[in-house]
């Protein structure tokens, strides 16, 4: 019974990934035949009716073909440009978060001011708001600074996203305070304590934050639609859903391409993902 549930959940989790990856190796013709919506009027015995073609979902291509991959990687490299756009957005966001958030979390945990919890409360509110609500202040500031239309309008607010501060501070609460106090009495500077004692101890949390932030930054849709005007500047996540006009031949290869970096970082960081969030 237990085993059946485990296997069922595992299979369900894997099916979409398997579907997308395996379908990326379909020939152009097969993908089009399987998934393009077609309504063909037919007539028989004097009646005219619409013959709807239902999608023929398959996990194993009839013929394994690299044509879709060849197209997006070699023949029409504009697609790679969108991958590049996504990287240019996601990498600074992840690096920035990894610098800003631990510092702030440590500072808030160590500060003795009564007001710190008010700031932290504000951080929690900001963290919980839906992106569209945050986009209003982001938009106002981007217009004011004249960076609207640039990647900077997306990257800077994302670097200062408050989820990381919340997550790391939550972990630090379980951290042994005596060690820090002892080091402080020994005359260690705050920065030394932070770098030598605290950072090594929250490494799993940093990895978890990196994985979660990357998954989020790699998935940017709303911010790009509001801030980016040039269609060629869009990240791959937006290009995939808007720029293909139902070209089923390459949809799956591009979906796989979009998935791969997120998967690689996830698999690299998976050991720390749960441990880093719950400790």
């Amino acid at each position: 019974m237990r085993l059946a549930i485990v296997v069922a959940v595992a299979v369900l989790s894997l099916i979409p990934v398997a579907f997308i990856i395996s379908n990326s190796f379909m020939s152009d013709g097969e993908a089009a035949a399987r998934y393009t919506s077609k309504i063909t009027p037919e007539s028989s015995f004097g009646f005219i009716y619409n013959n709807i073609h239902y999608m023929d979902m398959g996990f194993v291509p009839d013929v394994i073909s690299l044509s879709a991959w060849r197209l997006i990687l070699a023949q029409d490299p504009t697609h790679l440009r969108f991958l590049w756009n996504s990287l240019i957005l996601a990498i600074p966001i992840v690096l920035g978060q990894l610098i800003i958030a631990p510092l702030a979390a440590y500072g808030l945990e160590r500060a003795k001011s009564k007001h710190k919890e008010k700031f932290f409360f504000a951080y929690i509110i900001i963290m919980l708001l839906p992106m569209q609500a945050l986009l209003v202040p982001h938009f106002i500031m981007a217009e004011f600074l004249g960076i609207s239309g640039n990647y900077a309008a997306i990257i800077f607010p994302a670097i200062f996203a408050t989820f990381g501060v919340f997550l790391i501070r939550q972990q630090m609460k379980g951290f042994r305070k005596e060690i820090i106090e002892a080091a402080a009495i020994d005359g260690a500077k705050e920065l030394q304590i932070f770098l030598r004692i605290v950072l090594p101890n929250i490494k799993p949390t940093l990895v978890a934050l990196a994985v979660l932030t990357f998954a989020e930054a790699w998935n940017i849709v709303d911010q790009a639609v509001v801030f980016i005007r040039d269609p060629y500047q869009m990240p791959l996540s937006v290009h995939l859903s808007t720029g293909l006009a139902g070209n089923m031949g390459i949809v799956f290869a591009l979906s796989t391409l979009l998935m791969l970096p997120a998967l690689i970082i996830f698999i690299y960081g998976q050991d720390d993902l749960s441990e880093g969030v719950i400790k």
Binding site: A215, S237, M259, A262
Partner: peptide, 10 residues
């Protein structure tokens, strides 16, 4: 955990 990191677009 896999489904969490699959981009929405995919």
């Amino acid at each position: 955990m896999l489904p969490l990191v699959i981009p929405s677009g995919s």
